[in-house]
Write a protein that binds this DNA or RNA. Structure first.
Lengths: 208, 208
DNA sequence: TTCTTCGTGATACGACCGTACCATCATGTT
DNA sequence: AACATGATGGTACGGTCGTATCACGAAGAA
């Protein structure tokens, strides 16, 4: 038998090539030959490891969301262990903004996939739609926990605010992507709403 | 000379055919032949009136935004003349939600065009990106006016709130489109934030 | 009436795309 | 050593897409 290469690793390399070229020229413009050239392999190889283009695209979506999940985790770890709910929520929201090349590519492709899923049933059946639901639950839980700890305004509805925050982050991310808005503006708006929700504890030590 | 047909009207008919078929099968999947068949004309006709596919797509985008502007105007007129800022803002925001087939198509195609504009410079040069800016100005002006009239909380920043409201409407519109959320949920979230911003006048007559 | 020009149809062309087929090489196994 | 099999390359095929070309009818102008 020949080299006995690791299939999963190879598929990952090709999927990353797909993400790169799709991030550059748009998901609609990427062909099997482009992916092969970007990955430095022959067209035949891409066929060999994925069979059909549809499977390649689905795998690419999976690869994309996996990498993004890791990215969010890294960002959360970067804010230090046991951060407050406010810092966690902020990291969660700001990570999804397209500020550097990687997040820009992620945002572009994720939106492309989402748009495609409206008219493509194979994509619509993909569970990547459920991902925002998980984020919504996490953020709502964070807010509720903050409310119980007295760190957040107990008068607001946690789930409603979570939905609103995630929606704002998503749409303003797209605005950044198309060049309509700068990342600073989006960050400012998000921070403003976080400030509104997270009431600072007013039982601090009085000034001397 | 022959029948001397109205070019602009004909182009409008073809553009509407483009919007219909693109709304059904996705913008990426629409070809010149599909548009011709949908419009009930020959492929040659589409070429004759638009020359190239790119021009057809640009014209279709223009047609789409024009129709949407009319729709917003109609919705504003439907709330009665001289409505309060609250009713105007609510109409503005709720009109952009994909609730019926027409708004669903609009939302899908507008998002498709926006995604394409990231990697297509001809679309990026199109002024359809400036449209949200106009909406932002209008909504911010509305909020500021309401603040001056004592109808809205004077403590909030009008522009920041306007940006947030439009962003929420846009992103939740996409959520509705992909089937992740129902229109009722989105409406509820928007109304919640409008309630927060628009403080009802508390100088009403005291209860007997 | 004749002619010019606009509108319309049918069809062909070249390019590209996804997929399938065939050949070859390298490497474990027997 | 012979062989079986996984990995890889090259290439061809059918289809579709955007565009270009050729042709014809019809109606206002001369």
């Amino acid at each position: 038998m020949p080299k006995r290469v690791d299939h999963e690793e190879r598929r990952g390399q090709i999927a990353e090539a797909l993400v790169r070229v799709a991030g550059r020229r748009g998901l609609h413009a990427v062909g099997m030959r482009d992916v092969a050239a970007e990955a430095g392999v022959s067209l035949r190889l891409v066929q060999y490891y994925f069979g059909t283009k549809e499977k390649l695209l689905l795998y690419g979506l999976q690869h994309l969301t996996d990498r993004f999940t890791e990215r969010v985790g890294a960002r959360l770890r970067a804010v230090g262990r046991d951060p407050g709910p406010r810092a966690t929520a902020e990291a969660l929201l700001l990570t999804s903004l397209p500020t550097d090349e990687e997040s820009r590519t992620f945002h572009l492709l994720y939106t492309s996939y989402a748009v495609l899923s409206v008219t493509d049933e194979a994509l619509a059946a993909q569970p990547f739609i459920a991902n925002p639901d998980a984020a919504e639950d996490a953020l709502a839980g964070l807010l509720r926990q903050a409310q119980e700890s007295g760190l957040a305004d107990p008068g607001v509805d946690a789930r409603t605010e979570a939905i609103g925050l995630l929606a704002m982050a998503a749409a303003m991310g797209t605005s950044i992507l198309v060049g309509q808005r700068g990342p600073e503006s989006a960050t400012e708006v998000l921070r403003h709403h976080l400030d509104r929700i997270f009431t600072p504890p007013d039982d601090g030590p009085p000034a001397p």
